[in-house]
Design a protein around this nucleic acid. Sequence first.
DNA 1: TCTCAAGTATAACGATCGTTATATTTAACT
DNA 2: AGTTAAATATAACGATCGTTATACTTGAGA
Lengths: 201, 201
Amino acid sequence: MTARQTKTAETRAHLFDCALTLFSQRGYAATSIRDIIQAAGVTQPTLYYHFEDKVDLFRKLVEHYYGKNLQQLKSAIESLPDCQSRLLAMVQSSFEFCIADPRVSCLLFQTYYGPPVEEIKGILDKLTTKRFRLVTDTIQSGIESGELAPADPEFLALSFCCLMDQPINIFSRKKRPGQYLTRDLAMALVGIFLRGGGRKN
Amino acid sequence: MTARQTKTAETRAHLFDCALTLFSQRGYAATSIRDIIQAAGVTQPTLYYHFEDKVDLFRKLVEHYYGKNLQQLKSAIESLPDCQSRLLAMVQSSFEFCIADPRVSCLLFQTYYGPPVEEIKGILDKLTTKRFRLVTDTIQSGIESGELAPADPEFLALSFCCLMDQPINIFSRKKRPGQYLTRDLAMALVGIFLRGGGRKN
DNA sequence: TCTCAAGTATAACGATCGTTATATTTAACT
DNA sequence: AGTTAAATATAACGATCGTTATACTTGAGA
C-alpha cells in the first residue's frame, strides 16, 4: 500500500465515521452533505469522489455495520443448546453491540421506527427481515423443543423484538447507554418474555 | 356563528386535517408547508394567518389529538377493579384509538421513536411522560395488590409500553391497521406481559 | 525527470425550504 | 350603502439543499 493509497483510505474511513456520527444524531434526512464534509474537514467533491451520492453513503454505512451486527448475533447463539440461552444471548449481544458503538444501534433503530424516508426505505428492510427471521427461527425451535408455549411463532417473535429492541432504541440516545443496557436488564427482559411480570399463584 | 366564521373554521379544520395526513405519512421534517397548503387548496399566507408557523401548527395538532388519546385512556381504566383488566383496557383503548384514525398514532409514535427533531422535541416529551406515568401508576397498584410480581415498577412499565406501543407503531403504517390490532392481539400481548410465552411446568 | 491520473478544491447550478411584504377580496357592522 | 377589518392571494425574500462543471494539486510509474 503506497502512501497515497493510505491517505485515500483514511479519508474515506473518516468520512464514513463522521457520517455515522451525524446520521445517528440527527437522522438521514436532517443531516446534510455539508454537515458531513465540514465535520470531516474536506470539500463536497471529495465526498462525491468516494461515494456516488448521499444514498450510496448511507447504504454502505448501514450494510457495513448491520452486517457486523447480524454476524455477532449469529455467532452469539450458534453453540447454545436451549432456547432460553439463545434468547438471552441475543439480547446481551444486542446490548453489547450498542454499548460498543451506540451510534450504530441509534441510527438503525430510529431510522427503522421513525418516519419513512423514501430514498432509503429498501436498504434497512432487507436486513431487518433477516434479523427478524433469526429471531423467529430461534423461537420456532423453542416451541418445537417444548421450552415455549405452542403459540404463533411470528407473534412471539414480535413480542420478543419489542422487548429487546425498544430499550435499545430508547437508551442508545442517552449519554452512557451501558448504564442502562446492563446484563440485569437483559435477564429481566427475557424473564418477562418467558414468565411474564404477573404474580405466580 | 356567522357564515364568515363558519367558513374560517372550516378552513382551519381542513388545514389541520391535511397537515395531520401529511405529517403522519412523511413525518414533520419531510412535510413542507407547500405540501400542506397544496393539499388543503389554499395559499401560504392563509396557513400563516391561522397558525404562527410550522412548529405552532404541529404543536396544536399534537396537543389536540394526544389530549384526546390520554383522555380516552384514563376513562377506559378508571372504573376497572383489577390491574389485569386495566392493562388490557389500556391496550385495547390504544388499539381502538389507532383504528379510529391511524394517522394520529402513526404520527405520534414514529415521531417519538424516530430521529430527534430539534424544534419539536419538547412538545411530545411532556405528553408521553404523562402517559408513561399513567402506566407506571397502574403497574404500581398492581404490585401493591399482589397481582404483579414485586419488581421495579419503572421496568415493568417500560416492558409493558414496549409490548403495547411497538405493534401500534408498526401496524399503524399498514393499509388496514384494524386487521392486525385485534382484540386477540391485545389479549395475547397482555398475556405475554403477565405470564410470558414460556412453557409452564 | 516527466507524464498522467488519482485525489481534492473553488465556485456555482437549479430546486426547495420557511417565511413575509404587499395587495386584493369579501362579509359584517354602522 | 359605505366603511372597515377579517381573510385570502400574488409574488418574492434569503437560506439551504443535493449535486456537479471545472480547475488545481500531488504522488506513482515510465
